[in-house]
Amino acid sequence: MSDVAFYDFVREPFLKLALWVFFLGIAYRFFRVLFLGIPHDYAKPKGNPYYMAVKKIVIKPTMGWTFREIFARRAINFIGGFMFHIGFIGLTFLVPAHALLWREITGLPIPMMPNIVSDMLAYSAFGSLLVLTVHRALNPVLKLLTGKDEYFANLLIGLILFTGLLATKWAGSGYIWILSIHIFLADLLIIYIPFSRLSHFVYYFLSVGFMGWNAGKRGVSF
């Protein structure tokens, strides 16, 4: 199979399949949980649960930082995790080639970032992913909590970041192969997300929403 034939395969039928699986699977997982329903809460709330739910969804990623002693002990998780997520989300949506795909899918004018920014994000995301993976393998708590799922996801994302970097900078004459492998792995990731813990980004809204709702119900601000 020539590289362009492979490229055409991963870009057209496989990407399309991946996107179908992704949207279907993510909606399925989200609504499978949402439609389970919760019992009505008759206790009069002390604050405003709806406001707090929205507020927490917006500010939750920074909340853990106020726990200084936890931050000090798990700085790798906090800083690495933050860098990774910023990098991953930024790269997924704002790299020109990706942004054009998302524009097509969403119809929104998604901005495109210059290469220098995406390079920085990619290096930081890749580096922090490496560090986080090593940390995961060494920390006793994480050793207990981690399954194969996490390592596979880390490997997949690491390879995607690596091949993406390679394709933009260092590929040389193997450019189309590297690019195709990058897209192929990305397709795999898109398919893999609904089947794994990587779908936590949809549950974030539910879980943090409930947490904020509870905070509003109890009248605490944090």
Binding site: L15, A27, Y28, R29, F31, G107
Partner: peptide
């Protein structure tokens, strides 16, 4: 080059999501 050749717009995304929603509702 990076878009899906035969097109994958919000309509397809929404269709996928709706099927997913229906399945999710059924499962729930």
């Amino acid at each position: 080059l990076s878009v899906v050749e035969e097109g994958f717009s919000w309509k397809e995304a929404l269709a996928g999501a709706l099927i997913g929603t229906a399945l999710g509702y059924g499962t729930a």
